[in-house]
Simulated scan of single mutants.
Amino acid sequence: MSHINLFYSEPDPDRWIKFDRYPRRWIRRILRGKPKPGGVMMVALELIKGLELLNIPYRFNDYKYAKQHPEELIGVIGKPHLIFERRFKNPILFGAGVFSHPIECPDLFQKYPNVKKILVPGEWMKEMCEPYYGNQVKSWAVGIDSNLWESTNNKPKEYDFLIYDKVRWNYESLKDELINPIYKILKEKNLSYHIIKYGNYIPSQLRDMIEMSKAVIFLCEHETQGIAYQQILSTDTPIFAWDRGGFWQDPYYYPEKVKFQPVSSVPYWDNRCGLKFRDINQFNELLPQFLDQLQNHNFEPRQYILENLTLKICTQQYVDIYQSLL
């Protein structure tokens, strides 16, 4: 098999003067330590891990090779700055990091005809992009390392729930409407819980907290893929997920620029994963059912991951898409 050519870099533009990104990067490293990989970087890292598992050869950020072989397909994983800045001559498989919304570049295929297909992380985002990009957009999810995120069923459980808080917008309002009422209901039912907040942990801390928890309450407005909740499922930990649906809520776009619905906070899911609730009333209504199914071992979240979202399965899907464009 020929090499897969992959490219990824974090956007890091100059801010005040030319080339100031370099000292700013150095200062950030000193003040904040080694940066934690975000969602798009995780796509690149896990895809590479999957290629190595499958023994598929690849080149990573080999700009010299791409320039010398402009006829060879490349995969640009991250945000579009690489396409805009590098001006590749090569045919491109773009994604799954892409734009938040196609209005950022509705004429992408006209400006960059060497882009052959766009990958987005999930089905509802694909539907959001199709009016702009038609059948040139495809849904693809990066795989979950099911060996790293192994079952924790043999671990002693100190807490009934881990609450994973990834609420991003209108936090004070949702704290009153949803988050604090959840705490209150759990306390009233003598259910113990601890809390982890998105962006404030490293993966080992999440694994440690999952080990101590019988189940997870996942709070997020919507996810395009949702790597963290899928890592939780891979540990065989069922999830009680807030999935209110409705409009895409990103305040940069909604409601003035974009109104798109429906969205989901758990776009990859079946009834083995757990239960979903729309609001605090449904949380209260369905909590006894969730606890009953949890007690009776009716959920099989890890099996869902092993059948659909492992590193090998998802990486092979990427390779198949890549090779279809050769």
Rank of each mutant, 00 (worst) to 15 (best):
V137R: 04
I202F: 14
P262E: 09
L287Q: 01
E71R: 04
Y22K: 12
C129I: 09
E72H: 14
E211W: 04
P288A: 08
D165S: 07
W242F: 12
H69P: 08
I202G: 08
Y183C: 02
E150W: 02
Q230M: 15
F60L: 11
N5E: 15
I163E: 06
A215E: 01
M41N: 10
P70H: 05
L47M: 11
P262S: 07
D279R: 06
L162D: 05
C314R: 10
F260Q: 03
Y132H: 04
L286F: 10
Y22S: 06
R244C: 05
D250H: 15
F94Y: 13
E85S: 14
I4N: 00
M209T: 09
Q261C: 04
E307V: 02
I17Y: 14
N154Q: 14
C314P: 06
P91Y: 00
L306E: 13
W242L: 06
Q323C: 06
D208Q: 15
E158R: 11
Y183W: 12
D236P: 02
K49M: 10
L325Y: 06
Q316L: 13
H194F: 12
I210Q: 06
F99G: 03
W149M: 00
G95D: 04
I196H: 02
S204V: 11
K155L: 13
G39K: 07
L306Y: 03
N55W: 05
L287K: 00
E256R: 10
E172T: 10
F283Q: 09
L73I: 03
P203K: 06
F283T: 09
G33N: 04
V319T: 08
K18N: 11
N114K: 09
I210C: 10
G95Y: 07
G122R: 00
Y8G: 00
C105P: 04
I182K: 03
T224K: 05
L233G: 03
L174G: 02
P255G: 01
V137P: 01
L51G: 05
F99Q: 05
C273L: 04
L73Q: 01
F19W: 13
Y159W: 13
P113H: 02
K117M: 11
I83R: 01
A141S: 13
S324Y: 15
L326D: 11
E71W: 04
G78T: 01
I92W: 01
P288C: 07
N284E: 13
D176P: 00
S324D: 15
F240C: 08
P267H: 02
I280P: 05
E188R: 12
G78N: 03
L275C: 10
D145A: 02
P11D: 09
L178E: 12
P102F: 06
I321M: 10
F240E: 05
Y201A: 08
L6C: 14
L219D: 00
V115K: 00
Y198W: 14
I17R: 09
